[in-house]
Computed example of a mutant assay.
Amino acid sequence: MILLLDSHTFYWAVRAPGRIPALAVRLIEDPANELLVSAVTPWELGIKFRKGKFAEAGPFLAAFARHLSTLGARELPISGEHALIAAQIEWEHRDPFDRMLAAQAIVENAVLVTADAAFASLGGLRVMWADPSGS
């Protein structure tokens, strides 16, 4: 199975795995699954850090490559195909980072591992977890 980790999922998988449901942790830790982390993740976390919304992101991003390696994950670059799909998705959600993650998951035939319930409303996207409470 191919798993694309949402930005918060990547952070929690490294720093606070207890925040992720046990099933998702098992799948993330299963070496039979391919783990992807989008290039949008350091961009999103970096913007939150620069805006003062996520102070822990600075030190975390300084070790981004090491965190990928620790999880056995591969960075997923943003391609033109991803960008075109993100721009064309019929979805009310306007967050550009979320739109890119959704497009990448669709194009790469990956399951998006996220707590963000907004993704559940997008048809054609396979999502795991999507906590309606947002936690």
Rank of each mutant, 00 (worst) to 15 (best):
A130K: 09
A103M: 08
G123C: 04
H82T: 12
D98C: 02
A73D: 11
A63M: 13
F64Q: 11
W12M: 08
H8T: 05
E44F: 00
E92T: 14
A87P: 06
V113W: 10
S69I: 08
V113S: 12
P59Y: 14
D131E: 12
I47H: 02
V113M: 13
A65Y: 11
S135R: 15
E108S: 11
Q104V: 09
A118Y: 07
I20Q: 00
E56G: 01
A24V: 12
A63I: 00
P21M: 04
E34Q: 15
L71F: 06
I20R: 02
R26K: 10
A105R: 01
L27H: 14
D116Y: 06
P31W: 07
E90H: 00
V14Y: 05
E44Y: 02
L27K: 15
L112G: 01
I47E: 08
R15A: 11
L112S: 02
A103R: 05
H67L: 06
T70R: 10
Y11P: 04
W43V: 06
M100S: 03
T41R: 02
T114D: 01
E56K: 09
G18L: 01
M1L: 15
P17M: 09
L5F: 03
F54W: 07
A22C: 02
S38V: 04
W129N: 10
E29R: 13
F97N: 00
E44N: 03
Y11E: 02
F54L: 13
A115W: 00
L4G: 13
G134A: 10
